[in-house]
Computed example of a mutant assay.
Amino acid sequence: VDGWRGDDWFHNGAFRLGIDYIWEQIATRDNSSPFARTTFDEYDAAMRAGSAGALAKAHGLDQIGFWRKLSAHLAYDGFWQAQAMDQVLSRYPLKVPVMLVHGLWDQEDIYGATAVYRALKPKDTAGNMVYLTMGPWYHGQQIDDGKALGDIQWDQDTAKWWRRTVLGPFLAHYLKGTPMDVAPVTAFQSGTNQWQRLPGWPAQPAMTKLFLQPGDTVGFAPATGPVQTADYVSDPAHPVTNVPRPVRPVSYEDNHWKAWLVGDQRIVSSRPDVLTFTGPVLTQAVTIAGQPVVHLTAATSGTDSDWVVKLIDVYPDQVPSDPKMGGYQLAVGMDIFRGRYREGLDHA
C-alpha cells in the first residue's frame, strides 16, 4: 500500500535492507538471476560494505531502474505519495465491498491494511461495504496453519477459524447471495486468545497514557520533580540487529524471518546501548488496541539517528505449562523512525 510509510521498502524513512529481494524480483524478467551472496551472515556483508548504497552497487543494483528511483527518493515526496494506495483509493467512490486482512505481526506489510481501512471506512455510510480482519499472523499466515506464531501459542488454529467463519461466508454472500453474519471488524485479542466482533476500529479512543519515569521505570502517572534524561552510547560500528545473529536471508522455511516480530526481546533489552524502562507487575488486565502513539523527546551527537521504540509484554518469571516462556519478552508493538524526518516526512 505504501512502500515508504511502512510496507516493504521503508519504515518511516528507515530503509529495510532487502536488496536481494529487489534483485531477484526485478533484475531479470523471469527471475532467473539469483542474488550472489558473499556471506552466510547478512550482518557481515552489510558491515563490510558500510552503507546500503555501497552494498547495492557492489551487487550491481545501480543498473536497475527501481533501485535508482529508491535512491533518488529518500524522503516521502511526490514519488511515494502518488502511488500510496490508501491515498489513491480515497479519491474514488466506493463501489464494491472489500475485506481488508491485517496481520498483527506482519513482518513485511504491517502498514497497509489499516491505512486503507482509515481511507475507505468514511465512505461506507451504510456500514456494509468495508470490513476489516486483524489476525495474529505473520505475512500471509491467514492461508497457512494459524495455531502459533513463533513461540506464541494461540490455543486454536486462528487461520482456519477465520477462513471458515469470516472469509468463506463473506465471499459466499457477495458472490452467491448467501446470508452472512460477519461483523464489520473481526479482531483477535492476544492474551485472552479470543476473537472479537467489533463495530469499528479502533473500538474506542485511548483512555490511558504510559509515562517514562526516573530509575528506568514506567507508570500510568507523569513523573514529578525536575526534568531528567537517560543517556546511552550508540556505536554505528556495532548496530542493534532485529534478529539474533547470524542474520539469514529472507525465507519462510522457519521462524527466523517470518516470526521475528514476536521473537524474545531479551536479546535486545540486555544490550548496554538500549534503554529499557520496566513497570511493576500488573495487578489487573490492560488492553492495548489501535495504533500506539509515542511522544519522544531525544537528542543525538551524531548527524542522524534511527529511533526504535518497542512496547513489550514481559511474561511471568515461570510459566509451568511452557517453561521456555518464563520471562519471555513479547513485543506488542514496535516501529522505527529516522530522525532527519522529524520536521516533515517529505523532506530530509
Rank of each mutant, 00 (worst) to 15 (best):
W4I: 00
F10P: 00
G18K: 02
I22Q: 04
Q25T: 12
I26M: 12
D30G: 05
D30I: 03
S33C: 10
E42Q: 13
E42I: 02
A45I: 04
A46H: 08
A46P: 01
S51F: 02
A52N: 04
G53C: 04
G53T: 07
K57M: 06
A58H: 06
L61M: 04
S71L: 07
L74I: 07
D77H: 00
G78W: 01
A82L: 03
Q83M: 13
R91N: 13
P93I: 10
K95C: 06
M99A: 11
D106L: 09
P122N: 12
A126N: 12
M129Y: 05
M134N: 08
W137T: 05
Y138S: 14
Q141V: 03
Q141E: 12
I143A: 14
D151E: 14
D151N: 14
I152C: 03
T165Y: 04
H173N: 15
D181S: 15
D181L: 08
P184N: 14
P184L: 06
T192V: 09
W195L: 04
W195H: 07
T208N: 09
L210T: 07
G215R: 07
V218C: 06
G219Q: 06
F220L: 12
T224P: 03
P226W: 09
D231Q: 13
V233N: 10
N242D: 14
R245C: 02
P246S: 05
V247D: 01
P249R: 13
S251E: 11
N255G: 10
D264I: 08
D264R: 08
R266T: 11
S269L: 09
P272K: 06
D273E: 07
F277S: 05
V286C: 02
Q291C: 06
L296S: 04
S301L: 08
P320R: 11
L330P: 02
D335A: 00
D335H: 00
F337R: 00
